[in-house]
Amino acid sequence: MADKLLEVQNLRTQFFTRGGVVKAVEDVSFYLDESETLGVVGESGCGKSVTALSVMRLIDRPGKIVGGRILFRGEDVLEMDEEELYELRGGKIAMIFQDPTTSLNPVFTVGNQISEAIKVHLKLDDRAARNRTIEMMERVRIPDARRRYTQYPHEFSGGMRQRVMIAMALSCNPQLLVADEPTTALDVTIQAQVLDLMKALSEEFKTATMLITHDLGVVAGMAQRIVVMYAGRVIEEAPTRALFATPAHPYTQALLSAVPRSSVPRGTRLTAIPGQPPNLVNLPAGCSFAPRCPKVQPRCRVERPELETVGPNQRAACFYPY
């Protein structure tokens, strides 16, 4: 197996709020190879974004990373000092966010904002940074990049802004791109364009991508492997093909059956997963999915299943997989 670019081991991130300790990420382990795309899937509040922010050490009070190791190229991110972190962020790991409407500062031109990071990380002067910025804007296929360089964010559409964000993220040749729901706020056609672009660019730049989404359709076409999260834990990890063909965990199965399909007859009700995700302050004993699981057994309610190998490269946290 190739070198692991990123290896997260037993990560635990908690938020100490007035309502109690929110265990946003519990014992999460996964890895990313060089230039691999990993999909992280789960519903709202399952800890996807917190995992991503933890990887960049961007958890603010009241949150805290309370345990685990995050190895980036063998170096523990959790033990880096501020200097090294500033190097890491942007330079080695870059991030794209969900909402392109607020991800650019309205008072500076787009070009100014992209070139800022370039100046810091690549240590280029103004003119070189400008050229690099325009080149990056062209590479994310922003038409008329020279003119667009001097425009303000409000003159860009959502899709174009997301392209700007991608240009900004890739401008310093990061080895890992963390994309937190990059297409959720875009409409479907633009979504497809942006995804194609991300795929093409990550291949071109040999950047590994950690693609966080709640949309299984998005990861299907993009990721080589998928990690499914539920209530702050990884409950299944599998190559994309295997996950879609033979989902092991009942939650994954439920997620897949909830995807709307055009093949079902008209008038059929969409399948939904009954119930709500559990409260992360007060998790039930045993398997967190047990209260909603269609195949629940008495054992599930008292004992927590660990991630175990259930197939080739496929691991699931369930006593009764498939």
Partner: peptide, 14 residues
């Protein structure tokens, strides 16, 4: 809470 602040952090903003 705006994302560009968070984005600025992710590119190493102090």
């Amino acid at each position: 809470e705006q994302q560009y602040i968070e984005a600025a952090r992710t590119v190493g903003g102090t």
